[in-house]
């Protein structure tokens, strides 16, 4: 199954530079419908307004972290099946295990390259 390049993607990161990097990588992969939020609270509001095909989120943000966002998403009947990739500098095993238990679909440690992100998106979105 080919990737649906038209699916809306939500990028969540408090560093605008990282948002810009991920946006450019997604553009390079062919995705055009990309929105962003600077923390979990803003992301949750956007997720309730629009149906996203994928969330790519950082972990360490204020006031709501990516981990909390993930738990909110998985606890919400309308959002629970939304694919979720964590892209973060948090590389401790306890973080990876906690994210896995909370229902994350994939996990990438920063820094990463376009090919890594593409592989993750393909794995999560079933290409």
């Amino acid at each position: 199954m080919a990737l649906d390049l038209g699916m809306p993607i939500l990028v969540v990161d408090d560093y605008q530079t990282m948002v810009r990097i991920i946006r450019n990588l997604l553009k390079q992969l062919g995705f055009e419908d990309v929105d962003d939020a600077s923390d979990g609270t803003g992301a949750l509001a956007k997720l309730k307004q629009k149906k996203y095909g994928l969330v790519i989120s950082d972990w360490n943000m204020e006031p709501m972290t990516g981990y909390e966002l993930l738990r909110h998403v998985r606890a919400d009947d309308a959002l629970r099946t939304t694919p979720f990739i964590m892209v973060t500098a948090e590389s401790k095993t306890e973080n990876v295990i906690a994210a896995k238990k909370a229902g994350v679909n994939n996990y990438t440690v920063k820094p990463f390259n376009a090919q890594t992100l593409k592989t993750k998106i393909e794995a999560v979105c079933g290409a």
């Binding site: 981990y67 590389s91 401790k92 095993t93 906690a98 440690v109 920063k110």
Partner: peptide
């Protein structure tokens, strides 16, 4: 919330 931040000598995992 497991906010450990980046590890000093690269990713732990």
């Amino acid at each position: 919330l497991l906010l450990n931040g980046p590890q000093l000598k690269g990713p732990e995992t």
